[in-house]
Structures are given as C-alpha cells and as structure tokens.
C-alpha cells in the first residue's frame, strides 16, 4: 500500500485543482457537481424497461426525470477520467477485495458483495432523503 501511495499526487494539490474544476463548471456551464441524482435517473430508466406506465406515475420520477442529463454525463466522465488516470499512472489493477476489508473480514467475495450492495442501497436512500 505504501509503495502504491508514492505514485499519488498530494491530496491538497489534487483537491485544489478539483476546486478549480468546480469553479470553471459553474462559470461555463452553470452546473454544480453532484452524483446521486444520476442514480435516481438511471434506476428510473431501468425500471422503465420493465414497467413504463408505473414509472410515469411515480411522483419522484416526475421530479427527477429518467433521462441522460449533464450530471449523468459527469458521472460517466468520472469513470473514464479515473480509468485514464489509473492507466497512465500505471496503477490500474483489478481488485476484488480492498486490503483493509480483507484483513478484517476475510477473503469471502460473497460477504463483501452482500455488504457492499446493502451499504450502497442504504447510503443512496439517505443521500436522497438529505437531498445531497
């Protein structure tokens, strides 16, 4: 982990640059950064494949229309940007279990999948409730 750490940028520098990205986004596109609404829109788009008339009736999907918008592209961009940085920096690597997790909870991928899925569901519910 230490050896991997040495390849990273200073977190203050990376943070400050990301702050400038926010300022440019607000100035040029009028858009503030966020990610969680994208999960609502994507959930709506997926549900629409199965039960379109039901999605059209749900009040929350009238508020957050299930379609691709600025933030959806922003979230897709995070994936690409991270991939690009990891590839060019030489630290892309497939990893099934985080080191700290494995050290504490053992090598079961099923346990990690269950906890990560549940945690994701709970976190997103909370994020939407707090409107963040």
């Amino acid at each position: 982990m230490e050896e991997q750490d040495s390849r990273g940028w200073n977190p203050y520098l990376a943070g400050a640059l990301s702050g400038l990205v926010i300022v440019f986004s607000v100035g040029l596109a009028g858009k503030f950064l966020g990610a969680s609404t994208t999960f609502v829109r994507t959930a709506g788009m997926l549900e629409k494949l199965l039960t379109p008339e039901r999605v059209n009736r749900l009040e929350y999907f009238l508020k957050e229309i299930p379609q691709i918008d600025w933030q959806w592209m922003f979230v897709a961009g995070i994936f690409l940007g991270s991939w690009l940085a990891a590839k060019t920096g030489g630290d892309f690597r497939w990893q099934a279990l985080p080191a700290m997790w494995e050290g504490r909870f053992g090598p079961s991928r099923l346990t990690r999948a269950f906890v990560a899925f549940s945690g994701g569901a709970v976190a997103m519910f909370g994020a939407r409730l707090a409107d963040g």
């Binding site: 940028w9 990301s18 858009k31 961009g77 995070i78 994936f79 940085a85």
Partner: peptide, 13 residues
Amino acid sequence: TGILFGFLLQRGR
C-alpha cells in the same frame, strides 16, 4: 468536467 474530476480523484488516491 467528469473526466477532469475523475482524473483528479484517482490521482488524489
């Protein structure tokens, strides 16, 4: 914006 932000998130570890 996402690509730039994702790049910095990755480099910031």
